[in-house]
Design a protein around this nucleic acid. Structure first.
Ligand SMILES: [Mn+2]
Ligand SMILES: [Mn+2]
Ligand SMILES: [Zn+2]
Ligand SMILES: [Zn+2]
Lengths: 130, 130
DNA sequence: AATTAAACGCAACAATGTTGCAATTGATAA
DNA sequence: TTATCAATTGCAACATTGTTGCGTTTAATT
């Protein structure tokens, strides 16, 4: 039984997530932490937070990877079955907690995880009418 | 109006796609071509084929990127709204042309593209019961 | 305060993708 | 068929992202 520690770096990363309304990439987190810790440490913290079900990973069509806080009430086992929206203009990625895809799978597959990402224009960029 | 050319390398890449039942990564394609062309060339061919709507790109949760042939009857504009399945065991990625998610979006978003990837165990790996 | 496994920093590495530029080549028209 | 020329390629160089090994530091428990 591995115990997990609340280190300074981990707390700082969590605070960055708290402050952010959108999902964050490793690089964005690193910049915000302003050399509080090594970039390798951030990768390791993100891994741990994912295992602890505190954040989830979002993989985007353009290849970028971001992370966002889970805001279910900390149930242990859960699937992140909500959609994510990736704006092609401002490149912000937001969780759409209320958008959940329904679909019918062939019966001979076992689904463990789903990744549903939509891209296009977010409300902000849609208004400012490029 | 840019014209597009059917070069030897492009034809070879297309043939690799024809032969494959599953989606392919850049690296897998490069290996199958056996140094017929430079790896940069393959990236550029893939870009062109995507623009021509001949193949589509699949971005997986684990960060890997694969490509698969489009098998709609070459309509010009279309959305790849079918699901993709990524096996956690054999790492094969297949298009599930018949699985299309239905979902309800808030009205203030403009959706241009969707990426719906499921992961778990494919029929093969589910049977051989690891 | 001593203990000790978890976490860290650092350096080195691997994988993936991009860019600039000179050389080559497919498609078209003469 | 041959000349033309933009599309395509190869190559080298670079950027970004993520991983690994290992010696050192540190959070949490006794
Ligand atoms: Mn989310
Ligand atoms: Mn597909
Ligand atoms: Zn936007
Ligand atoms: Zn499988």
């Amino acid at each position: 039984m591995k115990t997990t520690r609340n280190t300074a770096a981990k707390m700082a990363v969590l605070e960055v997530f708290e402050k952010s309304k959108t999902a964050l990439s490793h690089t964005e987190i690193h910049k915000q932490l302003n050399d509080l810790c090594d970039r390798v440490t951030i990768y390791r913290i993100l891994d741990r937070l994912i295992n602890e079900d505190v954040i989830h990973k979002i993989s985007n069509l353009d290849g970028t990877v971001k992370y966002a806080k889970c805001n279910h009430s900390h149930q242990r086992v859960h699937i992140h079955n909500h959609a994510h929206f990736s704006c092609e203009n401002c490149h912000e990625i937001t969780c759409l907690e209320n958008v959940k895809p329904s679909y019918i799978m062939p019966h001979n597959y076992k689904v463990n995880e789903i990744n549903f990402t939509l891209s296009g224009l977010c409300p902000n960029c849609l208004n400012s009418n490029i």
